[in-house]
Amino acid sequence: MADSAGVLVLAETEGGALSPTAAELVTAGLEVAAGLGLPLSVAMAGSDVEATVQEAASLGAQRVYAVEDGILSTDKPELLLEAWAQICRQTNPAVVLIARTTAGRDLAPRLAARLGVGLAQDCLEVKVDEDSGRMIAHRPVYGGNAMAAVVCNGTPQMACIRPKAYEPCEPDDSRTAEVVSLSITLDESMARVKLVERVAEESEGVRLESAKIVVAGGRGLGSPEPFKDLEVIAGLLGAGIGASRAAVDAGWVPPSWQIGLTGKTITPDLYITVAISGASQHMAGCSGSKVIVAVNKDAEANIFKEARYGVVGDWEKVMPSFTETLRELLS
């Protein structure tokens, strides 16, 4: 068995490169590693991980574990799960960090159960308690109405970290790491769930997750038509367009537009909300916005508690003149 991995980041890979969340996990991991006085390791498992080794080293990993196996693929998450479990068993980490991506949020609970330990799910912050020498994770609960600080009792302590909760660390190509190859055993029969078909939704606009400006509408719009007006604004600003869950559940806009706890997480510089009340489940997906603008007829709406600029008024009257003024300013 190799020495302990210390703080181990289980990084996802995409097309032979590290996923963007890996650099965020390294930022979190370096803080925890410093607090525990342990090294930081990054592990990747995939069908083509050669190029990711130097990537991980340049992010600041002291040790890099690379597992390459041709049968690993993103279409077969059960194989990646077993690969991660074997990596953990062989490297003896004190702490394991995983990103709460679409894949990570499913893999992490099963990995924890497979290793017989607990998991702090959907964390915004992880830090080391000096007295106990244990990692404490802070996570939103009750739809974001409250925050819980939780401690995992077993070893490894495991946390699944919300994307964009940490800034990605800056790579430096002059950094080097000790590279350890691990040998693991996988076989095709472990992949019971099979992908049949993947259907990408037609999206003409700007990608919500990376948009600098986002415009979104909520239940108060009352029907699908007003979203056309929001699309005009989005077009003027080069913005992405989104919605609250209420608007999606009403069938006014596609599910891929949903921002919030069970939808997308956005971190734009400017987020313009129209007729969104700002329930905590919605705010969970947009609280990383730099400036929130709210138009809502209810002065008591929760959205105004987090907004920088607000208009209390009827969107049907506010938005046309807002749009026209924008058009003039930007022409």
């Binding site: 109405n145 409250a146 925050m147 819980a148 401690v151």
Partner: peptide, 12 residues
């Protein structure tokens, strides 16, 4: 026995 213990609960 809990594997994960809540040590604090607060309103952000």
């Amino acid at each position: 026995e809990p594997q994960v213990e809540t040590v604090d609960l607060y309103v952000p």
